[in-house]
Simulated assay, not measured.
Amino acid sequence: MSKKTPDLHAAYSLKSPEENKQLYAEWAGDYDEGFAALEDYQLHHHTARAFVGAGGQGPVLDVGAGTGLCGAILAGLGVGPIDATDISAEMLDQAMRKDIYRDAIEADLNHGLPVSRASYAGVVSSGTFTHGHLGPETLPALLRVARPGAQFALSINEKHFEALGFAGAFRSLEVDQISNLSFTEVRIYGELAAGPNKDDVALIALFEKR
C-alpha cells in the first residue's frame, strides 16, 4: 500500500506510475465526496463545456477519466458514446458504476493506448495534465487514436504547463499535426474551496487534429 495519505498534496507529489496506481487505488472510493465535493472542484465542468462549445462530438475518449466526473458532465450535455481510460483500475471501476461510459480502458499513457488508430472524434481530459502526472510527451499517443478533424479539450495546470514545456510541445505540433489551437484560463476550484491550492488555475487547450 502507498505510504501517502490520499489527498491533493500527495497527488501532486507522485513520482512514478506505480505510485499513481497505489494512491488512486486508495482514493477511488472517497474521491467524489471526500475531494471533489468538499473542495468545490470545478475543472471537469469547465473542460466538458469547453469541448461542447467548440463543437465536440462523440465518440469521445475521456483521458484520465478517474471516477467519471468529466464524463458525467459530457453525458449530461448529450455527448456520446464515451470511453474512459485511466491508469487506475479502481478509479475506472467507480466510473463504470455511473453507467455513462461505453468502455473502460486501463492504460498507462506513457506506454500508449491499446486502441486502434483514428478511433475517436473527440478527446477530453480534465485534471490529468497536472503536477505528478502526465507531461506533453504523451500528446502523440492521444493524436494517434483521434480521427482527422477530431476536437480536443485538455485541461493543463498552469504551473505544470510552464514547468514541463507544454508551450513548446504545442508549437511543434502546430507545424503539421494540429490546428485551431487556443487556450482558455479557468479556476480549478469554486468559491467554497479552501487551503493552499484554492486559487489554482488551469489552461484548457482546445485544438483539432489535422
Rank of each mutant, 00 (worst) to 15 (best):
E174L: 15
E19F: 02
H131Y: 13
A54N: 06
Y189I: 04
D200R: 05
N197I: 02
H160C: 01
V124Q: 06
A163D: 15
V115A: 12
Y24E: 12
F170H: 07
L69Q: 10
I82K: 07
P59V: 09
T5L: 09
L74T: 11
G55I: 06
A163Y: 03
D103H: 13
R102M: 09
Y24P: 04
V123W: 03
G53F: 08
G76K: 14
A107H: 02
Y24L: 00
E191G: 11
F51S: 00
P136H: 11
Y120E: 11
F152Y: 08
T130M: 05
C70P: 08
A37D: 15
T138H: 04
I73T: 15
Q57M: 13
L154S: 06
G58R: 11
E106G: 02
I156D: 02
N180Q: 15
D7I: 08
M91H: 11
L61M: 10
H46C: 03
N157Q: 07
L69S: 06
Q22H: 10
D93M: 12
K21Y: 02
V201G: 04
E174W: 07
L92T: 06
S2M: 02
F166W: 06
G58I: 11
A104I: 09
L181M: 11
A205K: 03
E39Y: 10
G78T: 12
